[in-house]
Design a protein around this nucleic acid. Structure first.
Lengths: 268, 268
DNA sequence: GAGTGGTCTAGACCACATC
DNA sequence: ATGTGGTCTAGACCACTCG
């Protein structure tokens, strides 16, 4: 183990940065680099336990806080996850592929199939739904071309796959349009919201998805059961338009980025 | 300020968790919550300086490391950015919208326009390109239906917008196909790589984009000039197929998630 | 019970930015 | 010159997990 440290002391002086002749990386980062290199080198595989705080303190002769800082780097990078009382483990990435274009093809949802069926095959999906009517949020109003104070039907859903929450979804529809339809019920019936909209004469035919990634807020960490560090969320804002080009629904989705790959297929 | 702390001591005992009757949030998190709430409450606006370590130590009567930990939460959430020697500031989000579908429409790139022109209007874009030939990387080989050991033309590009690096792009093409064409040059000529592929009888007509988000690796932090904390990257793997359905190019893109929104428009 | 990560204290020195 | 964040030490107690 000492030889390990000697090697790193030898590589401590690195290529010069702007002003100084010698720039030394902070200790915690060099420790993190070692661990990262070892992981990339397959010394530790998915699920393997990494050296803990005490190991690193002994190996590198540093204080506990410095060892923690080094491990914190890997947690922040999402390369490792901490299990309290047990250790820090290498993380893997085995995502759900979300087929985005074909999912919304007319023949699929018009027949009554869930738009989710293509994505997750035969894995067990549980959905909890809450519906309410409320004033349109400020950031949604312009997307639906509504005025502040106008009311919307708000459908909040939480998707749990194999007992693992994977997505939060909040859908906004003009209250005047959907009032009295099954859209205001928890169960929207066969074909879901879009089939009901079609029956109401507002069939959605064009879609826009705006995708961004960011770090989660605490309530999202809790609702999605994310690890406290290193897991971004993907935010999708989908707007559905009628043939006439009028927006009829806005759906804000928040996805655990460690669980998803979004797939978009299209033609030139 | 004392009253502020008193309020929080009052709300310190929270809704019960699994076993314990009383669960107390760690100090650093309650401090972080205060700051987050203040930001959401518009007490601090984009670019405003937040209370620093010394402020928080005095306000909350905690040690420096605890105050640092609280600020670290906001940095990790990407809500704030640290400027050494100056302070910690509220961050904003003013993204480039990347129009993904129309960008690749045939008439656009066939006419010689850059696929980027639609995205960024008249802002100044600089591209640095490196081209080389190499053995196909293991993770790319199956996408291009190549065997290990087969060679590919590798085009590495770095896009800098208004002196801010925003995207890294690595494109792989079968070496046998593109050898001798302008694709192996830094400047691929009018219409770019796809126009040259068309001339070679391998016109791409179908595209697949797989999108994921993750935390950046150190070399990506450096290459993209990211803040060290709180900024995920978006990874796009685009595969281009010919009319016959054969993959002809794989392009791995890495985007600063704080700089981009991906927009996908499509029809039912 | 021994080991793990999670939180916290009370100091210290440094590089950097601003005035 | 002062204040800022960045790094680091050397302790401590806790809750949790596992054998």
């Amino acid at each position: 183990m000492l030889s390990l440290e000697m090697r790193h002391l030898a590589t401590m002086r690195r290529a010069a940065r702007p002003t100084n002749v010698l720039t030394t990386e902070p200790k915690y980062r060099r420790i993190a680099e070692d661990l990262r290199a070892a992981i990339n080198n397959r010394d530790y595989l998915h699920g393997d336990r990494l050296p803990g705080e005490n190991d690193l303190m002994a190996r590198y002769q540093v204080a506990r806080m410095t060892a923690r800082q080094a491990l914190g780097v890997l947690l922040n990078e999402g390369i490792a996850v901490a299990h309290k009382g047990s250790g820090i483990f290498v993380r893997d990435f085995d995502p759900i592929i979300r087929e985005s274009l074909t999912r919304l093809s007319h023949d699929r949802w018009a027949r009554g199939a869930s738009i989710w069926s293509a994505d997750i095959a035969d894995r067990e999906l549980q959905v909890t739904t809450r519906v309410r009517e409320d004033a349109v949020p400020g950031h949604v109003a312009p997307l639906l071309v509504l005025d502040v104070g106008d009311h919307v039907c708000v459908r909040e859903r939480r998707f749990v796959l194999d007992s693992q929450p994977v997505m939060l979804s909040t859908s906004y529809l003009p209250a005047d349009v959907v009032r009295g339809s099954a859209i205001t019920q928890e169960d929207t019936g066969p074909g879901g919201t879009y089939a009901r909209l079609a029956e109401l004469g507002h069939e959605p035919t064009r879609f826009r998805e705006d995708v961004r990634a960011r770090m989660p807020q605490p309530h999202e960490i809790e609702a999605l059961g994310l690890f406290a560090f290193g897991t971004p969320v993907i935010e999708i804002v989908r707007t559905a338009f009628t043939e006439a080009g009028n927006p009829i629904e806005v759906n804000e989705m928040t996805l655990d980025a460690s669980a998803y790959v979004l797939r978009y297929d299209f033609e030139a």
